[in-house]
Design a protein around this nucleic acid. Structure first.
Lengths: 215, 215
DNA sequence: AAACCTGGAATGAATATTCATTCCAAACAA
DNA sequence: TTGTTTGGAATGAATATTCATTCCAGGTTT
């Protein structure tokens, strides 16, 4: 048992006297902007206002630091998505709820959002994704909530019969683009813009009523 | 005038006796996988089967190498999109044509596609995007073909009145996700899958007929 | 031969990691 | 209370490694 395996909530961070949190936050900020290889330990130490050696008191090495952050951020992300989620609602409502969660997380945690993006775009992240850990870090036995919405929706003929990957692409793809644009200051994501975007996502994946269906 | 500014088509590459092309291709392959900071010159030299010093005979430094590659790849990308493009066709056809081009480019040039992705995700790429050079490298006076489709489509009330960024997100976002999944071997992008995905993109951005409009 | 190329060793700067030392707050002793 | 001890936390200089770039001895082309 050593100090490295201690787990603290990410929210307990930023104040002085909380070196660990300062290091984590500095790492997220810098890697979200410059990427893993683009942010030296020295830079992290400086941003965290901490000696370089101190970082190694809390984390085995740079890899362990980043990996631990990713796991925590990914957990927080899932929590945000599932906040007040009700699996008994209609499919469309559940879909919109989960997607709103992604927007919320991205807008409220821009650095964490870009950190995850960087992670998934790295070779390490690609491996993870291939292992189906996407959004499901640590518990691969349980079906992801969004996957569940898709399969249920398909069974009810409400959602198009596209491959699961494609449904995810049409839901999350646009959101990721929009959140990134929002973070970059290229677009203002107010509630009405988000609403209409989510409507567009739903239009993309949902089965359109046939004209003959209209009563 | 020096050797560095010479411009050769990327297609003239890979054979022995073509160091320059070997270097470019190795760089694309490696950076597409490991990113800019993750691929040292030594690795490029090894992959290109070339001495490290040789690289500096053809390119001023690492930055110049990568920038030149980006500009060429971006040009090829635009060319692929516009291949056999007819601006007199109906909006939906033009939209589908351009998006097909993105798929084609990504599937036929997976490394180049991921290279561009890496570039746009780097601080340098973000700057570029903010300068509105996206898809339009070198000639910012002319409106992008996809932008033109959107503005024309909106004027004809065929395309939803979403911000331009959102329309792009709903068009390109899903495609980028799908092509990346395809490159990672997570999905098989046959023509019918692409067709239905593009249909989904169109459904996302197009104005749906009101029930009362149906004759 | 003269001009040019090439590979890879050499160089110095940047980076990750280690470690001897300092610092400090709490426990204890007076 | 006041001074002393002590153990873990913090530090940043020192070390080991990696990197971008330069250099040059030999090879190739013309």
């Amino acid at each position: 048992m050593n100090i490295h395996s201690k787990q603290k909530p990410l929210s307990t961070q930023g104040g002085t006297g909380n070196k660990r949190g300062q290091i984590i936050h500095a790492t997220i900020r810098l890697i979200s902007e410059y990427g893993f290889h683009g942010t030296p330990i020295s830079m992290i130490a400086q941003e965290a206002e901490v000696g370089a050696g101190t970082i190694y008191r809390y984390f085995k090495d740079k890899d362990a630091l980043v990996l631990e952050i990713f796991e925590q951020v990914n957990k927080d992300f899932t929590t945000t998505m599932l906040h007040e989620y009700d699996a008994d609602q209609p499919i469309q409502d559940r879909f919109i709820h989960l997607c709103w969660g992604i927007f919320r997380f991205g807008i409220q945690n821009p650095h964490e959002f870009k950190f995850m993006e960087q992670f998934y775009n790295s070779p390490y992240g690609t491996t993870l994704r291939r292992e189906k850990l996407f959004c499901n870090c640590g518990d691969s036995s349980q079906e992801l909530p969004l996957d569940k919405v898709f399969s249920t929706g398909q069974a009810q003929h409400l959602i198009k019969d596209l491959p699961l990957n494609a449904l995810i692409a049409h839901s999350i793809g646009p959101i990721v683009f929009l959140v990134k644009d929002s973070i970059a200051g290229l677009i203002q994501l107010d509630n009405s813009t988000i609403d209409s975007s989510l409507k567009a996502c739903w239009d993309a994946i949902s089965v359109k009523r046939q004209e003959s269906d209209i009563q």
